[in-house]
Computed example of a mutant assay.
Amino acid sequence: MDFFNHYIKEEISTGILILVVFLSRAFVSKIIRRYAKTSEIIERRTNLVIKYINVLITILFFITLILIWGVQAKDIFITISSIATVIGVAMFAQWSILSNITSGIILFFSFPFKIGDAILIHDKDYLVEGEIEDIGAFHVTLRSKEGEIVIYPNNLFFQKGISIIKKPLHTNSEFVD
């Protein structure tokens, strides 16, 4: 019983923090869903962005929780910097994964095309033309006029010129003439 009385301040702070985390997750989710609805963004992409943001909120929650319970900030920063160094070295070889995830989030919020649009990617030696079938976390799936499936990494959308040939008039998977 003495434990509960001794740490009452930390217990109350932890309760408030948990409430703030749940409310912020719900609020952020609602805002992103509202934005996605007005921008006609598909549900799968919306859920992916919400998932990324929830992971960030969870990481901040644990850091704050550790601070509430008395771990020194310098110890946390030493641990985080050590973990970040290890992850940084490991991910250096996998930079394209992080680049594609970041590009996927940017595509979600700001790019002028969506699923169903016919696009032309101006690659140096090889023009890629197709209808966007899916925009995922790592890549965009296109279907060419010949029916080929073309997988194009998200980060290349920021390195290549892209023309929107035609916006879809309806939601079927064939090109609109």
Rank of each mutant, 00 (worst) to 15 (best):
Q159E: 08
P168H: 06
I63N: 00
G15N: 11
W95R: 11
N54G: 09
Y126G: 03
D117I: 04
R143V: 11
S96N: 10
S99M: 05
I76Y: 00
R44Q: 12
E174N: 09
N172G: 14
F157W: 13
F3Y: 15
L56K: 01
F113R: 03
T58Q: 07
I80S: 08
I80Q: 05
D2A: 11
S96R: 13
K30C: 10
F111V: 11
I59Y: 10
F175I: 11
N100T: 02
F113D: 04
I132Y: 04
F109S: 09
G147M: 12
E129G: 05
R45Q: 12
A93W: 04
S99E: 06
F138R: 02
Y35T: 00
I80M: 09
T38M: 10
L120C: 07
I66H: 00
I80P: 02
L142D: 06
L120K: 15
L19G: 14
L56V: 14
I162A: 04
F27Y: 08
S81Y: 05
N155F: 10
F138M: 12
F109D: 13
V86L: 15
S29P: 04
F4H: 07
R25C: 07
E43C: 06
F108T: 01
E40N: 11
D2R: 15
D117M: 03
V89L: 14
F4W: 10
D134Y: 09
V150G: 01
N54R: 08
V71K: 15
S81T: 09
K145D: 07
G147D: 12
T46F: 03
S99I: 00
F22L: 12
F92W: 07
I76Q: 00
R33C: 03
T79H: 03
I83R: 04
N155K: 14
F92V: 01
F22E: 06
I66M: 10
S82T: 14
A36F: 03
I42E: 12
V28W: 11
G70R: 06
E133S: 09
I115P: 06
K114P: 00
V28E: 06
N172T: 06
